[in-house]
């Protein structure tokens, strides 16, 4: 009986705090995305030859984000019937956007205005065997350049 109560408490805590934290994180992501909108990210491999590049440097940003108890439970149920796992979709979305924002922040600190050849790497970090996927790490990296146009 105690186990059932503990489970329900964890579920409620996970739902309440998890949802609140996610909303707060999304607000912060949107605010910073607007702030760093002038740092251009370009996925192409080489900068166009007409750009006058003064300096280039490797930059990167990473983040490790975990799902809450409630979402993990819902995902466990979803596993039975299959289909879209919306609870995990928001997890990877947040992690990617956060990693990209940190990359932009580093680029901005170096005075860069463009970042070329963006690569995103995702790795799952397992907590314990019975939980399966608990948290993921996203690392974003690229080459930040400072162009003469941007000065």
């Amino acid at each position: 009986m105690f186990d059932l109560y503990l489970f329900l408490i964890l579920l409620a805590l996970g739902f309440a705090i998890g949802t609140w934290a996610e909303k707060r994180h999304y607000r912060s992501i949107r605010r910073r995305e607007a702030e760093y909108a002038d740092v251009l990210l370009i996925a192409s491999k080489l900068p166009t030859p007409d750009l006058q590049i003064e300096e280039s440097h490797l930059v990167g940003g990473n983040t490790v984000i975990s799902v809450d108890y409630f979402k993990r439970f819902v995902a466990g149920l979803r596993n039975l019937v299959g289909g879209r796992m919306t609870t995990y979709e928001s997890l990877v979305d947040r992690a990617r956007r956060e990693a990209i924002l940190r990359l932009k922040q580093e680029a901005r600190q170096l005075g860069a205005d463009m970042v070329f050849n963006i690569k995103l790497e995702t790795a799952s970090i397992s907590q314990s065997a019975n939980n399966g996927v608990g948290s993921i790490e996203v690392y974003a990296y690229g080459t930040a350049v400072r162009t003469r146009r941007g000065r």
Partner: peptide, 12 residues
């Protein structure tokens, strides 16, 4: 953190 979700700053 696994119960509440969010960023695991120590791992980052």
């Amino acid at each position: 953190k696994n119960i509440f979700g969010g960023e695991l700053r120590a791992y980052t």
